[in-house]
């Protein structure tokens, strides 16, 4: 009996150790960033300073703030991200509902294409897509040389609206599963009461799909926020946080710092800048983590 108790305590200790260890590995880069972001440049070459700087400073944040043009870039990034995830949400809800409720000749094939769209990496179509948007002719409707949509929101908006943006296929899959799992009795009642198909969808089904809509929106928000590939491709040089970060490393000459700046100092600024970039998403996560973590159970992927 005592042996059993001992074993149980041992198992608990092992579990605790594993959890703490894995958790530390995950948090390690973030903690490092924090340590570097508040570190005074003088401490960089002090070998006795490992985690906790001797002198705390706001300098790095101030420089990063100015280099990123933070308030403006933040507003832009939030704006673009909210716009894109709202459109992606609307599109995938409608498309997912269409797949869940009605069949037509070839609908299975089209749904297979949805799955295919998850698997095709965007790098495959990067070059043609870029050129098509650079010389956009709306399937030959606009005369040569076409419109240059690079640098505008249109490429991203069009892809979000048609359910072909980053990981949209996954969202269509999720919303379809969700609507399929919903009982049809609600819709039948609406039809009996004389509501049309569109009205039933917008007034009856959508309000009942709030949990899944929340999940799609949050994931879409986070993935759009972290996206570098499409923003780099379609919005080069835009005042967005993720694009600004990339330029911090390359800006060695900047007039704001009050110290003679060496190349290595920029790394501290870089760390502060990255924290400024992930902070909004971390705040979002802190408040809404429940939705992220319980998401898979609600998506109908399991059972």
């Amino acid at each position: 009996m005592r042996l059993n108790k001992l074993l149980a305590t041992g198992a608990k200790l092992v579990r605790f150790g594993l959890l703490v260890g894995i958790g530390f590995i995950i948090l390690y880069p973030l903690l490092r960033q924090l340590s570097a972001a508040v570190m005074h440049p003088d401490d960089m070459y002090d070998l006795t300073v490992n985690w906790i700087p001797r002198q705390l400073t706001r300098l790095n944040f101030e420089v990063a703030w100015k280099m990123l043009d933070y308030p403006r870039a933040l507003v832009n990034t939030v704006g673009v991200t909210v716009l894109l995830s709202t459109l992606e949400l609307a599109a995938t809800m409608i498309i997912g509902y269409g797949f869940a409720r009605w069949r037509y000749p070839g609908s299975n094939l089209v749904f297979a294409l949805v799955i295919l769209s998850i698997v095709i990496p965007p790098q495959m179509v990067m070059v043609p897509l870029f050129l098509n948007f650079r010389y956009f002719d709306l399937f030959g409707l606009i005369p040569e040389p076409g419109l240059n949509l690079i640098g505008s929101f249109w490429p991203l908006v069009l892809m979000a609206l048609t359910g072909t943006a980053k990981r949209s296929g996954l969202f269509i899959f999720i919303t379809r599963n969700f609507f399929r799992g919903m009982s049809t009795s609600l819709e039948e009642a609406a039809y009996v009461d004389g509501a049309g198909h569109l009205r039933t969808f917008f007034q009856i089904m959508l309000p009942n799909a709030k949990p899944i809509a929340m999940i799609v929106f949050l994931f879409s928000f986070v993935w759009n926020w972290n996206d570098l590939f499409y923003t780099n491709l379609f919005l080069p040089g835009a005042k967005l946080l993720q694009l600004g970060l990339a330029t911090i490393n390359s800006q060695y000459n900047y007039p704001w710092a009050n110290k003679a700046v060496e190349g290595t100092y920029i790394q501290l600024v870089n760390n502060a800048g990255m924290l400024l970039y992930v902070l909004p998403v971390l705040i979002l996560y802190a408040f809404l983590q429940r939705y992220f973590i319980e998401s898979i159970e609600k998506t109908g992927l399991v059972g």
């Binding site: 599109a91 179509v125 043609p128 897509l129 072909t164 198909h197």
Partner: peptide, 30 residues
Amino acid sequence: KSLLGLLFTLPFIVGFLAFLAYPFAQSVIF
């Protein structure tokens, strides 16, 4: 019902053709 299904999923069909299938075919040619 078929028409409704087509209507709701039409955005994806258009998007797939324009932003995936067509560039995909182009990439072979490129």
